[in-house]
Design a protein around this nucleic acid. Structure first.
Lengths: 193, 193
DNA sequence: AGGATCACTTGATAAATGTCAAGAAATTAA
DNA sequence: TTAATTTCTTGACATTTATCAAGTGATCCT
């Protein structure tokens, strides 16, 4: 299996010497999942971290009425990880599911820990990954608090045009915090212009 | 100056030997700020990390209409840090402001970096701080996307009862993503019950 | 103390979004 | 291919929240 996309991802975030990236990614294992399957189940402790090499995913929770609320969407290439479960060894509250057929590279918490404590570049990389994820979440929160649904949809369209093609309307709607009827109307409204 | 509250904070998150905490906090400097003052200005690069020992703060941005949108509130004891600016050496988009008189402990990025790469317990602590902050943000986002304003206010009341006493209504409203009129009406509605 | 500013409340009305239900279109399964 | 299921759209109507404007009370300033 060719690890070039995995290796490139490390380089793209942070300048790391080639041989160190190879050392980091050596223990990663490849696997695939068909669409509409669960990568991480609810109430399990996630002991692996995943690199989504190809495909589309989402994470979601079930609210009191057992409705699915999409909490995040993932477009390859990116890491997919339940931070809370992985680092605090707690059961996940969130379900991670493939939307399309996906291919992954996975590695264990033990390996992450080993790298974190022995490879300075890996620590910097991990922290940067956190900073970026935190910052994206923060931007989404600000948007949610201050923009109306149509604006949020238009932003998503601009930032992640592929999402609209690969995710069903219902999932995009709940990701944006609106109902599917409303999103359908927003689309109609936009298409007029 | 007594560092016990700063030191205790390290212990409270993660079991760390006393002497290591002392080594970590040794270079922290104490200072105070009166209320309604700016801790981190917009468009500056934040090169310090702050521990809020006592008092209340918020972070906010200005939107296109130059209205203040409160992005986060801080209740001592906690760390206050613009992750994006601090770790990526970028100008902040966010303003950090005291709400009440506050007392802080500060340290430099260089010191954080030194500790991060030389003290394993400090790395674990830092990462845990990230995980916790990320997770809180995630919970807020889910709430914002799926609960109505009254529910969000009642949750805040339950989770952070002191916030309601120390922050003006306007700031709480924008933190909850609503206008001050609406929050005033929500309060009236709740008081009826 | 007195005027200025700020924080909060309230009313009338408008805009944004949700709910429920039905039907059309697309996809999946047998 | 047909039937079943899911996805998307749309209408009628309800609820939530925003907007604007005015008024009251509190606080700050010199």
């Amino acid at each position: 299996m060719n690890k070039s996309r995995l290796n490139n991802y490390f380089h793209s975030l942070f300048p790391i010497p080639e041989e160190i990236v190879k050392r980091i990614t050596a223990p990663f294992c490849h696997f695939t999942l068909d669409k509409n399957l669960t990568l991480i189940e609810k109430n399990t402790i996630s002991t692996k971290t995943y690199f989504l090499e190809e495909g589309y995913m989402r994470s979601y929770i079930l609210n009191e009425e057992n409705e699915e609320i999409t909490t995040n969407i993932y477009v390859a290439p990116c890491f997919v990880n339940d931070f809370l479960s992985f680092f605090k060894k707690q059961p996940t509250k969130v379900i991670y599911q493939t939307i399309t057929d996906c291919s992954f590279w996975e590695t264990s918490l033990e390996n992450v820990q080993k790298n974190f404590h022995t490879i300075p570049e890996f620590r910097e990389f991990s922290r940067l990954l956190f900073v970026i994820n935190y910052s994206k979440l923060n931007d989404r929160l600000i948007e949610m608090a201050s923009q109306k649904a149509e604006t949020r949809y238009l932003n998503l369209l601009k930032e992640q045009p592929l999402v609209i093609q690969h995710f069903p309307l219902k999932i995009i709607a709940s990701y944006l915090g609106i109902t599917d009827s409303t999103l359908s109307r927003i689309r109609k409204e936009i298409s007029k212009i």
